[in-house]
Design a protein around this nucleic acid. Structure first.
Lengths: 245, 245
DNA sequence: CGGCAGTTTGACAAATTCTTTACATTTGAA
DNA sequence: TTCAAATGTAAAGAATTTGTCAAACTGCCG
């Protein structure tokens, strides 16, 4: 298992994704958490700005808008939710990842209303937080580029979250759309079922891999000319699926 | 979703992810949990090493570094957190998945300070743990290697998992592709059949070594100019095979 | 509470791949 | 040269993976 042998390297990196370029604003009042988060993201190559209260965070954001904000809801001076609202009012596309202490349902609803893009309940894993921040960054980085994709008589508008077939709107469910989006964004690459589960279904849900197959089935039925012999949503036997434009 | 205690009824896999290859070090003192975890991961094709205390786990890790460590925080002899720190100091990229009861880690700070990559609270579902271990492995596996290799009129795109011959796509099966990849990555070196079985097929249920021969045969038929007198996939009599570009 | 849309699971057949096996051929050493 | 072991080869059989459908489940809304 040579490829797995633990390399004794100096760089501490949780995975080998390309070095990110972006500044992160961390809003967190607990000094211990501040310190650890700072270290975590700096070791991944991000520039980090840490603010301990909502007021200074708002000022920092206005003076020098970051690429993404990591926000603890429980804050002195200016509550996390208020900060969230203000930021979203001034920079609607700036992604905010919220750290929340509870899994309370009302919290989740609240977050959506606030405009947060993602939330992580503690305790959380470093990998999870990193993944979400990366996802958030990818979102904003890519959105100006590829908003429209088309093939056959299908056209996909990612901004509107709308798919048309021969000019007529095709309704996709939320999960179907997410799956489609992920596949299209990774066109030509073979995606394993477990990778899809991780990236599309997320970190909290672990349905069986057959669920993936069923969603592919749906996509084929809705988007392929001949669903029985798919051209765009291909099966790579033993490996996963692959979208080809 | 079935919880941790759910019986793993058949020897069949929980899902259909590609057969993994990698050794796992499980550090857990409860014999009952040991047993279940061992069975779970072995049924998925991983080689499993189980250690009951921190001291022996550390020794095992040093003697033979695994691909991933599953670590129960509550341990005799050497605490889980200390072990975690020591491992991370020696092998920063080796992923560690921490198991813990909710009361053990009430604070995300501890988790982050430990350097753990991921975190699962007991009770957990087998599927969840599997998914996290796979994700951890996938991240370390993501090789910054070359994505394109070519020889003769063959070109291999590892990212797309696609092989072309004279511009036309050659379809390889999953196992064939893995074999090819391993050989190409170890070009010019003689690879024993056992080594191939270890690294390509994985630990469990070794097929006979003749299976390897058959896959080499297929590769020759699909990729050699004259399969009967192979140039790139050479036989080293009594030793194994060797790929030459 | 009941209905509804979306999601997940499980079952089964169909498709594909993997492994074994048998026999032919080649290799290397005595 | 001769022989035993190693390898090449093809095809049958075993096993796995996937397509597909229907039923069970979930959360939400009236």
């Amino acid at each position: 298992m040579g490829q797995f042998a633990a390399p004794i390297s100096t760089a501490r990196s949780l995975d080998s994704a390309p070095r990110p370029a972006g500044r992160i604003l961390i809003v967190e009042d607990d000094p211990a958490v501040q310190k650890v988060l700072k270290r975590l993201f700096e070791s991944e190559g991000y520039a980090v700005d840490v603010q301990g209260n909502g007021q200074s965070a708002l000022e920092s954001f206005q003076a020098n808008p970051p690429a993404v904000i990591i926000l603890d809801l429980r804050l002195p001076r200016l509550s996390g939710s208020d900060l969230c609202k203000q930021v979203k009012a001034q920079a609607p596309t700036l992604p905010i990842v919220v750290l929340s202490a509870t899994t309370d349902v009302s919290d989740k609803v609240l977050l959506l209303e606030l405009g947060a893009d993602d939330y992580v309940t503690k305790p959380f894993s470093p990998r999870e937080l990193l993944a979400r921040v990366r996802a958030a960054l990818r979102h904003t980085q890519r959105s100006p580029n590829v908003n429209l994709v088309s093939f056959d008589d299908i056209s996909i508008d990612f901004r509107k979250m709308e798919v048309q077939r021969d000019g007529k709107v095709v309704t996709l469910t939320a999960q179907e759309f997410k799956t489609l989006k992920f596949l299209v964004e990774n066109a030509d690459r073979v995606i394993g079922r477990d990778e899809l589960l991780n990236d599309v279904w997320g970190y909290q849900n672990y349905p069986s891999t057959r669920t993936v197959d069923n969603h592919i089935l749906k996509l084929r039925q809705k988007l392929e000319r001949d669903p029985a012999s798919p051209v765009h949503f291909r099966t790579v036997h033993g490996m996963g699926y692959k979208f080809v434009r």
